[in-house]
Nucleic acid binder design. Sequence first.
DNA 1: TTGCTGTCCTGCATTTTTGCAAAATGAATT
DNA 2: AATTCATTTTGCAAAAATGCAGGACAGCAA
Lengths: 293, 293
Amino acid sequence: MASWDDMRVFLAVARAESLSRAAPTLRMDAATVGRRIARLEAGLGAALFVKSPQGYALTDLGVRMRDHAADAEASLTQAVEEARGDQAGLTGQIRIGAPDGAANYLLPQVCAAIAAENPGLEIQVLALPRVVNLSKREADMAITVSPPQAGRLTVQKVSDYRLHLAASKSETIENMDDLKGHRIVGYIPDMIFDKELDYLGDFGADGVQVASNSVAVQVMALRSGAGVGIMHDFALPFAPELKRVLVNELSLTRSFYLVRHVSDRSSDRLNRFAAALNHGLKAEISRLERLVA
Amino acid sequence: MASWDDMRVFLAVARAESLSRAAPTLRMDAATVGRRIARLEAGLGAALFVKSPQGYALTDLGVRMRDHAADAEASLTQAVEEARGDQAGLTGQIRIGAPDGAANYLLPQVCAAIAAENPGLEIQVLALPRVVNLSKREADMAITVSPPQAGRLTVQKVSDYRLHLAASKSETIENMDDLKGHRIVGYIPDMIFDKELDYLGDFGADGVQVASNSVAVQVMALRSGAGVGIMHDFALPFAPELKRVLVNELSLTRSFYLVRHVSDRSSDRLNRFAAALNHGLKAEISRLERLVA
DNA sequence: TTGCTGTCCTGCATTTTTGCAAAATGAATT
DNA sequence: AATTCATTTTGCAAAAATGCAGGACAGCAA
Protein backbone atom coordinates (compact mmCIF):
# COMPACT_ATOMS: atom_id res chain seq x y z
CA MET A 1 0.00 0.00 0.00
CA ALA A 2 1.87 3.01 -1.30
CA SER A 3 -0.19 5.92 -0.03
CA TRP A 4 -2.54 5.72 2.91
CA ASP A 5 -3.66 9.25 2.20
CA ASP A 6 -5.14 8.21 -1.11
CA MET A 7 -7.39 5.87 0.83
CA ARG A 8 -8.45 8.76 2.99
CA VAL A 9 -9.62 10.74 -0.02
CA PHE A 10 -11.15 7.59 -1.48
CA LEU A 11 -13.25 7.19 1.65
CA ALA A 12 -14.39 10.78 1.52
CA VAL A 13 -15.38 10.51 -2.13
CA ALA A 14 -17.09 7.19 -1.48
CA ARG A 15 -19.20 8.90 1.18
CA ALA A 16 -19.90 12.08 -0.72
CA GLU A 17 -20.36 10.27 -4.03
CA SER A 18 -18.89 13.28 -5.73
CA LEU A 19 -15.51 14.95 -6.08
CA SER A 20 -16.83 18.42 -5.56
CA ARG A 21 -18.72 17.53 -2.40
CA ALA A 22 -15.83 15.51 -1.01
CA ALA A 23 -13.34 18.28 -1.66
CA PRO A 24 -14.43 20.70 1.10
CA THR A 25 -14.48 17.99 3.75
CA LEU A 26 -10.93 17.14 2.74
CA ARG A 27 -9.95 20.78 2.52
CA MET A 28 -8.64 20.17 -0.94
CA ASP A 29 -9.53 21.24 -4.41
CA ALA A 30 -11.82 18.95 -6.36
CA ALA A 31 -9.19 18.72 -9.07
CA THR A 32 -6.69 17.32 -6.59
CA VAL A 33 -9.23 14.85 -5.28
CA GLY A 34 -9.91 13.65 -8.79
CA ARG A 35 -6.23 13.25 -9.56
CA ARG A 36 -5.64 11.21 -6.44
CA ILE A 37 -8.55 8.91 -7.13
CA ALA A 38 -7.16 8.44 -10.63
CA ARG A 39 -3.76 7.61 -9.17
CA LEU A 40 -5.26 5.15 -6.71
CA GLU A 41 -7.21 3.37 -9.40
CA ALA A 42 -4.18 3.23 -11.64
CA GLY A 43 -2.12 1.70 -8.86
CA LEU A 44 -4.82 -0.85 -8.15
CA GLY A 45 -5.47 -1.52 -11.79
CA ALA A 46 -9.19 -1.52 -11.15
CA ALA A 47 -12.05 0.94 -11.24
CA LEU A 48 -13.49 2.10 -7.93
CA PHE A 49 -16.03 4.54 -9.30
CA VAL A 50 -18.15 5.02 -12.36
CA LYS A 51 -17.57 8.65 -13.23
CA SER A 52 -20.07 10.99 -14.72
CA PRO A 53 -21.05 14.62 -14.60
CA GLN A 54 -23.59 13.44 -12.00
CA GLY A 55 -20.85 12.44 -9.63
CA TYR A 56 -18.75 9.47 -8.64
CA ALA A 57 -20.73 6.29 -7.98
CA LEU A 58 -19.05 3.35 -6.31
CA THR A 59 -18.46 0.18 -8.24
CA ASP A 60 -19.03 -3.19 -6.67
CA LEU A 61 -15.37 -3.35 -5.76
CA GLY A 62 -15.51 0.18 -4.47
CA VAL A 63 -18.21 -0.72 -1.97
CA ARG A 64 -16.12 -3.51 -0.54
CA MET A 65 -13.10 -1.26 -0.31
CA ARG A 66 -15.06 1.49 1.37
CA ASP A 67 -15.89 -0.78 4.30
CA HIS A 68 -12.26 -1.68 4.84
CA ALA A 69 -11.26 1.93 4.54
CA ALA A 70 -13.84 2.83 7.16
CA ASP A 71 -12.31 0.22 9.46
CA ALA A 72 -8.94 1.80 8.92
CA GLU A 73 -10.39 5.20 9.71
CA ALA A 74 -11.74 3.89 13.00
CA SER A 75 -8.34 2.52 13.98
CA LEU A 76 -6.60 5.72 13.03
CA THR A 77 -9.12 7.78 14.96
CA GLN A 78 -8.52 5.64 17.99
CA ALA A 79 -4.81 6.17 17.54
CA VAL A 80 -5.04 9.94 17.71
CA GLU A 81 -7.47 9.65 20.58
CA GLU A 82 -4.84 7.83 22.54
CA ALA A 83 -2.89 11.04 22.25
CA ARG A 84 -5.87 13.25 22.98
CA GLY A 85 -6.67 11.17 26.05
CA ASP A 86 -3.27 12.05 27.42
CA GLN A 87 -4.07 15.70 27.68
CA ALA A 88 -6.65 16.73 30.27
CA GLY A 89 -9.89 18.14 28.93
CA LEU A 90 -11.52 17.59 25.58
CA THR A 91 -9.94 18.94 22.42
CA GLY A 92 -10.48 18.92 18.70
CA GLN A 93 -13.70 19.25 16.82
CA ILE A 94 -17.05 17.63 17.58
CA ARG A 95 -20.05 18.06 15.34
CA ILE A 96 -23.53 17.34 16.60
CA GLY A 97 -26.64 17.16 14.48
CA ALA A 98 -30.03 18.07 15.90
CA PRO A 99 -33.56 19.00 14.89
CA ASP A 100 -33.86 22.73 14.97
CA GLY A 101 -35.94 22.96 18.12
CA ALA A 102 -33.13 21.52 20.16
CA ALA A 103 -30.53 23.28 18.04
CA ASN A 104 -32.07 26.68 18.73
CA TYR A 105 -33.26 26.56 22.30
CA LEU A 106 -31.18 23.91 24.07
CA LEU A 107 -27.85 23.25 22.46
CA PRO A 108 -26.49 26.80 22.46
CA GLN A 109 -26.52 27.06 26.24
CA VAL A 110 -25.44 23.48 26.85
CA CYS A 111 -22.64 23.59 24.31
CA ALA A 112 -21.47 26.94 25.58
CA ALA A 113 -21.10 25.50 29.05
CA ILE A 114 -19.19 22.46 27.81
CA ALA A 115 -16.97 24.60 25.61
CA ALA A 116 -16.21 26.87 28.54
CA GLU A 117 -14.88 23.93 30.51
CA ASN A 118 -12.80 22.62 27.61
CA PRO A 119 -10.83 25.43 26.01
CA GLY A 120 -9.38 23.25 23.26
CA LEU A 121 -12.76 22.01 22.13
CA GLU A 122 -14.62 23.22 19.06
CA ILE A 123 -18.31 22.32 18.96
CA GLN A 124 -20.30 22.55 15.77
CA VAL A 125 -24.09 22.45 15.90
CA LEU A 126 -25.66 21.20 12.70
CA ALA A 127 -29.34 22.16 12.62
CA LEU A 128 -31.04 20.03 10.03
CA PRO A 129 -34.62 19.75 8.87
CA ARG A 130 -34.15 16.03 8.38
CA VAL A 131 -32.58 13.03 10.06
CA VAL A 132 -28.82 13.24 10.20
CA ASN A 133 -26.87 10.59 8.32
CA LEU A 134 -24.33 9.42 10.86
CA SER A 135 -23.12 6.62 8.62
CA LYS A 136 -21.78 9.18 6.23
CA ARG A 137 -20.16 11.01 9.10
CA GLU A 138 -22.16 14.15 8.64
CA ALA A 139 -21.83 14.47 12.40
CA ASP A 140 -20.20 12.68 15.31
CA MET A 141 -23.50 12.28 17.10
CA ALA A 142 -27.08 13.37 16.75
CA ILE A 143 -30.13 14.34 18.78
CA THR A 144 -33.28 12.74 17.38
CA VAL A 145 -36.94 12.62 18.31
CA SER A 146 -37.31 8.90 17.77
CA PRO A 147 -34.85 6.06 18.19
CA PRO A 148 -33.31 5.12 14.82
CA GLN A 149 -34.68 2.05 13.16
CA ALA A 150 -31.61 0.58 11.49
CA GLY A 151 -27.92 1.10 11.03
CA ARG A 152 -25.04 0.36 13.31
CA LEU A 153 -25.99 2.96 15.84
CA THR A 154 -26.21 3.18 19.59
CA VAL A 155 -29.01 5.15 21.12
CA GLN A 156 -29.72 6.43 24.60
CA LYS A 157 -32.72 8.34 25.78
CA VAL A 158 -31.88 11.80 26.97
CA SER A 159 -35.05 13.26 28.40
CA ASP A 160 -38.76 13.75 27.90
CA TYR A 161 -40.02 17.19 27.00
CA ARG A 162 -43.48 18.67 26.87
CA LEU A 163 -45.36 20.64 24.27
CA HIS A 164 -48.44 22.76 24.57
CA LEU A 165 -50.45 25.16 22.51
CA ALA A 166 -49.07 28.66 22.65
CA ALA A 167 -50.15 32.02 21.38
CA SER A 168 -49.41 35.68 21.82
CA LYS A 169 -50.42 37.05 25.23
CA SER A 170 -52.71 39.50 23.49
CA GLU A 171 -54.99 36.71 22.33
CA THR A 172 -57.72 35.16 24.45
CA ILE A 173 -58.19 31.45 24.13
CA GLU A 174 -59.90 29.79 27.03
CA ASN A 175 -61.68 26.78 25.56
CA MET A 176 -61.46 24.57 22.54
CA ASP A 177 -64.07 26.53 20.70
CA ASP A 178 -61.94 29.67 20.87
CA LEU A 179 -59.45 27.90 18.61
CA LYS A 180 -61.78 28.17 15.65
CA GLY A 181 -61.19 31.89 15.43
CA HIS A 182 -57.41 31.61 15.23
CA ARG A 183 -55.01 30.66 12.57
CA ILE A 184 -52.91 27.54 13.12
CA VAL A 185 -49.11 27.82 12.95
CA GLY A 186 -47.18 24.60 12.38
CA TYR A 187 -44.95 22.47 10.23
CA ILE A 188 -45.22 22.33 6.48
CA PRO A 189 -47.11 19.03 6.24
CA ASP A 190 -45.04 17.33 3.57
CA MET A 191 -41.79 18.32 5.20
CA ILE A 192 -42.39 16.51 8.44
CA PHE A 193 -39.43 14.14 8.50
CA ASP A 194 -40.41 12.24 11.65
CA LYS A 195 -43.89 11.19 12.61
CA GLU A 196 -43.22 12.27 16.18
CA LEU A 197 -43.31 15.81 14.88
CA ASP A 198 -46.81 15.48 13.45
CA TYR A 199 -48.30 17.09 16.54
CA LEU A 200 -51.36 18.52 14.87
CA GLY A 201 -52.27 15.34 13.09
CA ASP A 202 -52.74 13.75 16.50
CA PHE A 203 -55.82 15.77 17.23
CA GLY A 204 -56.96 16.26 13.69
CA ALA A 205 -56.35 19.87 12.90
CA ASP A 206 -57.91 20.82 9.58
CA GLY A 207 -55.10 22.74 7.99
CA VAL A 208 -52.14 24.93 8.77
CA GLN A 209 -52.41 28.58 7.82
CA VAL A 210 -48.87 29.64 8.62
CA ALA A 211 -46.29 26.93 8.17
CA SER A 212 -42.54 26.56 8.27
CA ASN A 213 -40.09 23.70 8.37
CA SER A 214 -38.32 25.56 11.16
CA VAL A 215 -39.47 25.71 14.72
CA ALA A 216 -37.64 28.98 15.14
CA VAL A 217 -39.64 30.54 12.33
CA GLN A 218 -42.85 29.23 13.86
CA VAL A 219 -41.93 30.88 17.14
CA MET A 220 -41.29 34.17 15.42
CA ALA A 221 -44.65 33.86 13.70
CA LEU A 222 -46.43 33.27 16.98
CA ARG A 223 -44.63 36.18 18.62
CA SER A 224 -45.94 38.50 15.95
CA GLY A 225 -49.47 37.28 16.59
CA ALA A 226 -49.85 35.03 13.61
CA GLY A 227 -52.03 32.57 15.50
CA VAL A 228 -51.73 29.58 17.74
CA GLY A 229 -49.44 26.59 17.46
CA ILE A 230 -47.85 23.70 19.26
CA MET A 231 -44.71 24.83 21.00
CA HIS A 232 -41.97 23.25 23.07
CA ASP A 233 -42.23 24.33 26.67
CA PHE A 234 -38.48 24.80 26.74
CA ALA A 235 -38.70 27.36 23.96
CA LEU A 236 -41.19 29.61 25.71
CA PRO A 237 -38.77 31.38 28.06
CA PHE A 238 -37.12 32.82 24.97
CA ALA A 239 -40.41 34.27 23.75
CA PRO A 240 -41.80 36.50 26.51
CA GLU A 241 -44.67 37.60 24.29
CA LEU A 242 -46.07 34.08 24.29
CA LYS A 243 -48.21 32.25 26.78
CA ARG A 244 -49.36 28.66 26.89
CA VAL A 245 -53.08 28.13 26.30
CA LEU A 246 -55.45 25.28 27.01
CA VAL A 247 -52.76 23.59 29.06
CA ASN A 248 -55.17 21.13 30.60
CA GLU A 249 -57.00 20.37 27.42
CA LEU A 250 -53.95 19.64 25.25
CA SER A 251 -50.57 18.39 26.35
CA LEU A 252 -48.02 16.38 24.44
CA THR A 253 -44.90 14.59 25.60
CA ARG A 254 -42.02 13.65 23.38
CA SER A 255 -38.46 12.47 23.96
CA PHE A 256 -34.98 13.29 22.76
CA TYR A 257 -32.54 10.52 22.00
CA LEU A 258 -28.79 10.75 21.64
CA VAL A 259 -27.60 8.64 18.72
CA ARG A 260 -24.05 7.64 17.98
CA HIS A 261 -22.00 5.29 15.84
CA VAL A 262 -21.38 1.90 17.43
CA SER A 263 -17.78 2.11 16.35
CA ASP A 264 -17.37 5.21 18.48
CA ARG A 265 -18.36 3.39 21.63
CA SER A 266 -14.73 2.89 22.59
CA SER A 267 -13.81 6.48 22.08
CA ASP A 268 -13.15 7.92 25.48
CA ARG A 269 -13.29 11.41 24.09
CA LEU A 270 -16.74 11.05 22.53
CA ASN A 271 -17.97 9.14 25.55
CA ARG A 272 -17.02 12.00 27.80
CA PHE A 273 -18.59 14.54 25.50
CA ALA A 274 -21.78 12.50 25.16
CA ALA A 275 -22.05 12.21 28.91
CA ALA A 276 -21.63 15.95 29.34
CA LEU A 277 -24.14 16.63 26.59
CA ASN A 278 -26.67 14.21 28.02
CA HIS A 279 -26.38 15.67 31.49
CA GLY A 280 -26.45 19.23 30.21
CA LEU A 281 -29.54 18.66 28.07
CA LYS A 282 -31.44 17.00 30.93
CA ALA A 283 -30.63 19.90 33.21
CA GLU A 284 -31.45 22.58 30.67
CA ILE A 285 -34.82 21.07 29.70
CA SER A 286 -35.70 20.74 33.35
CA ARG A 287 -34.63 24.30 34.12
CA LEU A 288 -36.53 25.81 31.19
CA GLU A 289 -39.70 23.82 31.80
CA ARG A 290 -39.76 24.93 35.43
CA LEU A 291 -39.62 28.53 34.24
CA VAL A 292 -42.91 28.26 32.35
CA ALA A 293 -44.79 26.12 34.86
CA MET B 1 -6.81 12.98 11.39
CA ALA B 2 -5.13 15.21 8.89
CA SER B 3 -2.68 12.88 7.19
CA TRP B 4 -3.02 9.13 7.14
CA ASP B 5 0.34 8.91 5.44
CA ASP B 6 2.05 10.31 8.49
CA MET B 7 0.68 7.36 10.41
CA ARG B 8 2.19 5.06 7.84
CA VAL B 9 5.64 6.48 8.39
CA PHE B 10 5.03 6.48 12.12
CA LEU B 11 4.32 2.76 12.00
CA ALA B 12 7.46 2.09 10.01
CA VAL B 13 9.61 4.08 12.41
CA ALA B 14 7.96 2.41 15.38
CA ARG B 15 8.91 -0.96 13.94
CA ALA B 16 12.41 -0.05 12.86
CA GLU B 17 13.07 2.04 15.96
CA SER B 18 15.20 4.32 13.84
CA LEU B 19 14.69 6.89 11.13
CA SER B 20 17.53 5.62 8.99
CA ARG B 21 16.35 2.03 9.10
CA ALA B 22 12.74 2.97 8.47
CA ALA B 23 13.64 5.15 5.50
CA PRO B 24 14.51 2.38 3.00
CA THR B 25 11.36 0.39 3.78
CA LEU B 26 9.36 3.54 3.08
CA ARG B 27 11.42 4.36 0.02
CA MET B 28 12.01 7.81 1.42
CA ASP B 29 14.96 9.75 2.66
CA ALA B 30 15.59 9.63 6.38
CA ALA B 31 15.36 13.40 6.49
CA THR B 32 11.83 13.27 5.15
CA VAL B 33 10.88 10.59 7.62
CA GLY B 34 12.18 12.71 10.47
CA ARG B 35 10.32 15.77 9.28
CA ARG B 36 7.06 13.88 9.04
CA ILE B 37 7.38 12.39 12.50
CA ALA B 38 8.06 15.90 13.77
CA ARG B 39 4.97 17.16 12.01
CA LEU B 40 2.86 14.33 13.40
CA GLU B 41 4.02 14.95 16.95
CA ALA B 42 3.42 18.67 16.59
CA GLY B 43 -0.09 18.05 15.36
CA LEU B 44 -0.77 15.68 18.23
CA GLY B 45 0.93 17.88 20.77
CA ALA B 46 2.57 14.87 22.33
CA ALA B 47 5.84 12.97 22.03
CA LEU B 48 5.72 9.58 20.33
CA PHE B 49 9.43 8.83 20.48
CA VAL B 50 12.40 9.59 22.66
CA LYS B 51 15.02 10.62 20.16
CA SER B 52 18.70 9.92 20.45
CA PRO B 53 21.70 9.20 18.25
CA GLN B 54 20.92 5.55 19.02
CA GLY B 55 17.59 5.78 17.28
CA TYR B 56 13.94 6.50 17.94
CA ALA B 57 12.46 4.64 20.91
CA LEU B 58 8.72 4.56 21.43
CA THR B 59 7.20 6.37 24.36
CA ASP B 60 4.38 4.84 26.34
CA LEU B 61 1.89 6.70 24.22
CA GLY B 62 3.77 5.67 21.11
CA VAL B 63 3.33 2.00 21.93
CA ARG B 64 -0.42 2.39 22.25
CA MET B 65 -0.59 4.31 19.01
CA ARG B 66 1.51 1.73 17.19
CA ASP B 67 -1.06 -0.97 17.89
CA HIS B 68 -3.89 1.11 16.49
CA ALA B 69 -1.79 2.02 13.48
CA ALA B 70 -1.11 -1.67 12.91
CA ASP B 71 -4.86 -2.32 12.97
CA ALA B 72 -5.31 0.38 10.37
CA GLU B 73 -2.60 -1.18 8.25
CA ALA B 74 -4.41 -4.50 8.36
CA SER B 75 -7.66 -2.89 7.21
CA LEU B 76 -5.92 -1.02 4.43
CA THR B 77 -4.14 -4.15 3.29
CA GLN B 78 -7.45 -5.94 3.15
CA ALA B 79 -8.84 -3.07 1.13
CA VAL B 80 -6.23 -3.36 -1.60
CA GLU B 81 -6.57 -7.12 -1.53
CA GLU B 82 -10.20 -6.73 -2.42
CA ALA B 83 -8.90 -5.19 -5.60
CA ARG B 84 -6.19 -7.77 -6.09
CA GLY B 85 -8.71 -10.55 -5.62
CA ASP B 86 -10.61 -9.21 -8.57
CA GLN B 87 -7.85 -9.93 -10.99
CA ALA B 88 -7.08 -13.57 -11.68
CA GLY B 89 -3.72 -14.81 -10.44
CA LEU B 90 -1.57 -13.44 -7.68
CA THR B 91 0.05 -10.05 -7.98
CA GLY B 92 2.16 -7.68 -5.96
CA GLN B 93 5.05 -8.49 -3.71
CA ILE B 94 5.36 -11.33 -1.22
CA ARG B 95 8.39 -11.72 1.00
CA ILE B 96 9.14 -15.02 2.63
CA GLY B 97 11.76 -15.56 5.32
CA ALA B 98 13.51 -18.89 5.66
CA PRO B 99 16.57 -20.54 7.19
CA ASP B 100 19.22 -20.73 4.55
CA GLY B 101 18.98 -24.48 3.94
CA ALA B 102 15.47 -24.09 2.66
CA ALA B 103 16.28 -20.75 1.08
CA ASN B 104 19.09 -22.24 -0.99
CA TYR B 105 17.90 -25.68 -1.99
CA LEU B 106 14.10 -25.61 -1.89
CA LEU B 107 12.63 -22.17 -2.30
CA PRO B 108 14.31 -21.20 -5.57
CA GLN B 109 12.65 -23.99 -7.53
CA VAL B 110 9.34 -23.75 -5.72
CA CYS B 111 9.13 -19.98 -6.00
CA ALA B 112 10.17 -20.07 -9.62
CA ALA B 113 7.27 -22.41 -10.36
CA ILE B 114 4.78 -20.23 -8.49
CA ALA B 115 6.12 -17.08 -10.13
CA ALA B 116 5.81 -18.69 -13.54
CA GLU B 117 2.12 -19.27 -12.98
CA ASN B 118 1.53 -15.75 -11.69
CA PRO B 119 3.16 -13.20 -13.97
CA GLY B 120 2.27 -10.23 -11.79
CA LEU B 121 3.80 -11.71 -8.68
CA GLU B 122 7.13 -10.71 -7.21
CA ILE B 123 8.54 -13.14 -4.68
CA GLN B 124 11.37 -12.15 -2.36
CA VAL B 125 13.28 -14.83 -0.48
CA LEU B 126 14.85 -13.55 2.70
CA ALA B 127 17.55 -15.98 3.85
CA LEU B 128 18.28 -15.25 7.47
CA PRO B 129 20.65 -16.84 9.97
CA ARG B 130 18.09 -16.20 12.70
CA VAL B 131 14.40 -16.41 13.33
CA VAL B 132 12.40 -13.98 11.26
CA ASN B 133 10.45 -11.32 13.13
CA LEU B 134 7.04 -11.46 11.54
CA SER B 135 5.60 -9.02 14.06
CA LYS B 136 7.84 -6.34 12.65
CA ARG B 137 6.76 -7.32 9.16
CA GLU B 138 10.20 -8.32 8.05
CA ALA B 139 8.37 -10.82 5.88
CA ASP B 140 4.83 -11.86 5.03
CA MET B 141 5.45 -15.43 6.10
CA ALA B 142 8.30 -17.59 7.24
CA ILE B 143 9.62 -21.13 7.08
CA THR B 144 10.95 -22.26 10.46
CA VAL B 145 12.41 -25.43 11.92
CA SER B 146 10.32 -25.33 15.07
CA PRO B 147 6.86 -23.99 15.76
CA PRO B 148 7.04 -20.50 17.24
CA GLN B 149 6.54 -20.21 20.95
CA ALA B 150 4.65 -16.94 21.32
CA GLY B 151 3.23 -14.11 19.31
CA ARG B 152 0.02 -13.82 17.38
CA LEU B 153 1.08 -16.30 14.75
CA THR B 154 -0.52 -19.21 12.94
CA VAL B 155 1.60 -22.20 12.17
CA GLN B 156 1.16 -25.20 9.94
CA LYS B 157 3.50 -28.10 9.49
CA VAL B 158 4.83 -28.37 5.95
CA SER B 159 6.85 -31.55 5.78
CA ASP B 160 9.44 -33.68 7.49
CA TYR B 161 12.90 -33.80 6.00
CA ARG B 162 15.87 -36.04 6.66
CA LEU B 163 19.52 -35.37 7.35
CA HIS B 164 22.51 -37.67 7.15
CA LEU B 165 26.24 -37.46 7.35
CA ALA B 166 27.77 -36.56 4.04
CA ALA B 167 31.28 -36.29 2.66
CA SER B 168 33.15 -36.06 -0.59
CA LYS B 169 32.97 -39.21 -2.67
CA SER B 170 36.74 -39.42 -2.54
CA GLU B 171 36.66 -40.16 1.18
CA THR B 172 36.06 -43.59 2.63
CA ILE B 173 33.96 -43.78 5.75
CA GLU B 174 32.35 -47.08 6.43
CA ASN B 175 31.99 -47.26 10.20
CA MET B 176 31.88 -44.94 13.13
CA ASP B 177 35.54 -45.30 13.82
CA ASP B 178 36.42 -43.93 10.41
CA LEU B 179 34.95 -40.64 11.55
CA LYS B 180 37.86 -40.01 13.88
CA GLY B 181 40.17 -39.40 10.97
CA HIS B 182 38.01 -36.72 9.41
CA ARG B 183 37.34 -33.13 10.20
CA ILE B 184 33.80 -32.18 11.18
CA VAL B 185 32.00 -29.49 9.22
CA GLY B 186 29.01 -27.81 10.92
CA TYR B 187 27.42 -24.74 12.41
CA ILE B 188 29.31 -22.17 14.38
CA PRO B 189 28.23 -23.36 17.84
CA ASP B 190 27.26 -20.02 19.36
CA MET B 191 25.34 -18.97 16.27
CA ILE B 192 22.84 -21.81 16.39
CA PHE B 193 19.58 -19.91 16.64
CA ASP B 194 17.30 -22.90 17.04
CA LYS B 195 18.00 -25.97 19.10
CA GLU B 196 16.64 -28.12 16.29
CA LEU B 197 19.73 -27.17 14.32
CA ASP B 198 22.12 -28.51 16.95
CA TYR B 199 22.50 -31.76 15.05
CA LEU B 200 25.96 -32.56 16.27
CA GLY B 201 25.18 -31.92 19.89
CA ASP B 202 22.68 -34.75 19.70
CA PHE B 203 25.36 -37.38 19.38
CA GLY B 204 28.06 -35.54 21.19
CA ALA B 205 30.58 -34.49 18.61
CA ASP B 206 33.67 -33.05 20.25
CA GLY B 207 34.24 -29.95 18.20
CA VAL B 208 33.75 -28.51 14.76
CA GLN B 209 36.82 -27.92 12.67
CA VAL B 210 35.23 -26.09 9.77
CA ALA B 211 32.20 -24.07 10.74
CA SER B 212 29.83 -21.61 9.17
CA ASN B 213 26.49 -20.08 9.99
CA SER B 214 25.43 -20.90 6.46
CA VAL B 215 24.42 -24.32 5.23
CA ALA B 216 25.44 -23.30 1.74
CA VAL B 217 28.95 -22.55 2.89
CA GLN B 218 29.08 -25.87 4.69
CA VAL B 219 28.09 -27.64 1.49
CA MET B 220 30.81 -25.87 -0.44
CA ALA B 221 33.30 -26.89 2.23
CA LEU B 222 32.26 -30.52 2.00
CA ARG B 223 32.43 -30.45 -1.79
CA SER B 224 36.03 -29.33 -1.61
CA GLY B 225 36.83 -32.20 0.70
CA ALA B 226 36.97 -30.31 3.96
CA GLY B 227 35.58 -33.22 5.95
CA VAL B 228 32.29 -34.71 6.95
CA GLY B 229 29.13 -33.04 8.17
CA ILE B 230 25.42 -33.34 8.68
CA MET B 231 23.64 -32.47 5.50
CA HIS B 232 20.02 -32.17 4.36
CA ASP B 233 19.15 -34.98 1.99
CA PHE B 234 17.37 -32.47 -0.21
CA ALA B 235 20.60 -30.52 -0.69
CA LEU B 236 22.62 -33.47 -1.94
CA PRO B 237 21.35 -33.55 -5.53
CA PHE B 238 22.94 -30.12 -5.96
CA ALA B 239 26.32 -31.41 -4.85
CA PRO B 240 27.26 -34.34 -7.08
CA GLU B 241 30.68 -34.61 -5.43
CA LEU B 242 29.01 -35.62 -2.17
CA LYS B 243 27.70 -38.93 -0.93
CA ARG B 244 25.87 -39.85 2.21
CA VAL B 245 27.84 -41.96 4.68
CA LEU B 246 26.85 -44.14 7.62
CA VAL B 247 23.23 -43.85 6.56
CA ASN B 248 22.13 -46.65 8.82
CA GLU B 249 24.18 -45.56 11.78
CA LEU B 250 23.07 -41.95 11.82
CA SER B 251 19.84 -40.48 10.59
CA LEU B 252 17.99 -37.37 11.71
CA THR B 253 14.50 -36.15 10.97
CA ARG B 254 13.40 -32.57 11.27
CA SER B 255 10.35 -30.59 10.13
CA PHE B 256 9.60 -27.36 8.39
CA TYR B 257 6.76 -25.17 9.54
CA LEU B 258 5.04 -22.37 7.71
CA VAL B 259 4.40 -19.45 10.03
CA ARG B 260 2.15 -16.48 9.35
CA HIS B 261 0.50 -13.56 11.06
CA VAL B 262 -2.93 -14.35 12.49
CA SER B 263 -4.18 -11.08 11.07
CA ASP B 264 -3.33 -12.35 7.59
CA ARG B 265 -5.62 -15.34 7.94
CA SER B 266 -8.39 -13.55 6.09
CA SER B 267 -6.16 -12.53 3.21
CA ASP B 268 -7.24 -14.55 0.26
CA ARG B 269 -4.10 -13.62 -1.59
CA LEU B 270 -1.71 -14.82 1.11
CA ASN B 271 -3.84 -17.90 1.71
CA ARG B 272 -3.51 -18.86 -1.92
CA PHE B 273 0.20 -18.22 -1.92
CA ALA B 274 0.70 -20.17 1.31
CA ALA B 275 -1.20 -23.11 -0.11
CA ALA B 276 0.92 -23.08 -3.24
CA LEU B 277 4.10 -22.76 -1.21
CA ASN B 278 3.10 -25.57 1.13
CA HIS B 279 2.25 -27.89 -1.71
CA GLY B 280 5.34 -26.95 -3.66
CA LEU B 281 7.67 -27.50 -0.75
CA LYS B 282 6.19 -30.90 0.08
CA ALA B 283 6.59 -31.99 -3.52
CA GLU B 284 10.10 -30.63 -3.88
CA ILE B 285 11.38 -32.23 -0.66
CA SER B 286 9.86 -35.52 -1.70
CA ARG B 287 11.33 -35.28 -5.18
CA LEU B 288 14.83 -34.42 -4.01
CA GLU B 289 14.88 -37.04 -1.28
CA ARG B 290 13.89 -39.70 -3.76
CA LEU B 291 16.84 -38.69 -5.91
CA VAL B 292 19.36 -39.51 -3.21
CA ALA B 293 17.72 -42.65 -1.89
C1' DT C 1 42.56 11.36 24.34
C1' DT C 2 41.59 10.48 19.59
C1' DG C 3 39.50 8.58 16.04
C1' DC C 4 35.54 5.92 14.30
C1' DT C 5 30.87 4.68 13.68
C1' DG C 6 26.41 4.99 13.84
C1' DT C 7 22.76 8.11 14.47
C1' DC C 8 19.78 12.53 13.71
C1' DC C 9 19.46 17.43 12.09
C1' DT C 10 19.72 21.50 8.65
C1' DG C 11 20.21 24.33 4.06
C1' DC C 12 19.42 24.33 -0.70
C1' DA C 13 18.23 22.76 -5.52
C1' DT C 14 14.87 19.84 -7.57
C1' DT C 15 10.77 17.38 -8.12
C1' DT C 16 6.15 16.70 -7.05
C1' DT C 17 1.83 18.16 -5.62
C1' DT C 18 -1.55 21.51 -5.32
C1' DG C 19 -5.01 25.23 -6.32
C1' DC C 20 -7.17 28.11 -9.45
C1' DA C 21 -9.48 29.13 -13.69
C1' DA C 22 -11.22 27.68 -17.91
C1' DA C 23 -13.07 24.10 -20.83
C1' DA C 24 -15.54 19.89 -21.58
C1' DT C 25 -19.19 16.63 -20.43
C1' DG C 26 -23.80 14.77 -20.19
C1' DA C 27 -28.45 14.72 -18.26
C1' DA C 28 -32.68 17.34 -17.40
C1' DT C 29 -35.65 21.03 -18.66
C1' DT C 30 -37.69 24.67 -21.32
C1' DA D 1 -33.57 21.24 -30.15
C1' DA D 2 -31.37 24.45 -27.47
C1' DT D 3 -30.12 25.69 -22.87
C1' DT D 4 -29.10 25.27 -18.23
C1' DC D 5 -27.05 23.17 -14.52
C1' DA D 6 -23.89 20.82 -11.69
C1' DT D 7 -20.60 18.08 -12.47
C1' DT D 8 -15.57 16.37 -13.98
C1' DT D 9 -11.36 17.28 -16.49
C1' DT D 10 -7.31 19.93 -18.17
C1' DG D 11 -3.50 23.68 -18.38
C1' DC D 12 -0.45 26.35 -15.91
C1' DA D 13 1.76 28.94 -12.15
C1' DA D 14 2.64 28.75 -7.21
C1' DA D 15 3.54 26.19 -3.17
C1' DA D 16 4.93 22.30 -0.69
C1' DA D 17 7.47 18.19 -0.04
C1' DT D 18 11.45 15.68 -1.07
C1' DG D 19 16.34 14.16 -1.65
C1' DC D 20 20.99 15.13 -1.19
C1' DA D 21 25.11 16.66 0.99
C1' DG D 22 27.26 18.41 4.79
C1' DG D 23 27.28 19.05 9.82
C1' DA D 24 26.58 17.91 14.75
C1' DC D 25 26.33 14.79 18.33
C1' DA D 26 26.82 10.67 21.42
C1' DG D 27 28.86 6.24 22.33
C1' DC D 28 32.73 3.13 21.88
C1' DA D 29 37.31 1.33 21.06
C1' DA D 30 42.19 1.77 20.49
